[in-house]
Amino acid sequence: MDFSQIIPSLPSLWDGMKLTLQLLALAVLGGIVLGTVLALARMSSNTVLSGLAKAYVNYFRSIPLLLVITWFYLAVPMILNWITGEFIAVGAFTSCLVAFVMFEAAYYCEIVRAGIQSISKGQLNAAYALGMNYGQAMRLIMLPQAFRKMTPLLLQQSIILFQDTSLVYAVGLIDFLNAARARGDIMGQSHEFLIFAGAVYFVISFGASTVVKRLQKRLAV
């Protein structure tokens, strides 16, 4: 075992990590926003709307993430071409981001839905009784309380997403894992670089997970 080349390689590994974190942050944000919209649609009294949302969630929860990533890599440019009539180069990063947002939204949807359902119906009634409309009742009363309760679960899901971002190697994006793999190959230290990458993933995921557990205990009181 020879880890000597890792220190000199840190700048290029950091570039990979930056891409990983960027993708993660944008995917979490987009996923939670789309997931919330889906959750509200699923709980809607409009059966068409709730049926569509339910089908969406069930579909994306039943197919592999790797499939979605590779499929969207091909599909996103095509769909944009369709809509705009022009050829637009989207790039692997954008198509991966879209894939993650759409895939993760299905999982975030279920978390948000459970969160909203955990708030008593009396709160909604009180908001309505004060003259709030549906949008105000959700935005001002229900969602803030639901998100407070859901934060640990949303973070836990985001830690899983952090690990899953490594799947972007399939479409050639240089994320942290791919950077470590490529760099290790060049340096002739493949094992060492992968062990190092594994250690980094472990420290970040386990550390974040521990923080979340502590947060969960504090929020539970």
Binding site: S120, G122, A129, I141
Partner: peptide
């Protein structure tokens, strides 16, 4: 309401 329903 019976259960007050202040916004916590």
């Amino acid at each position: 309401f019976q259960n007050f329903e202040l916004f916590p």
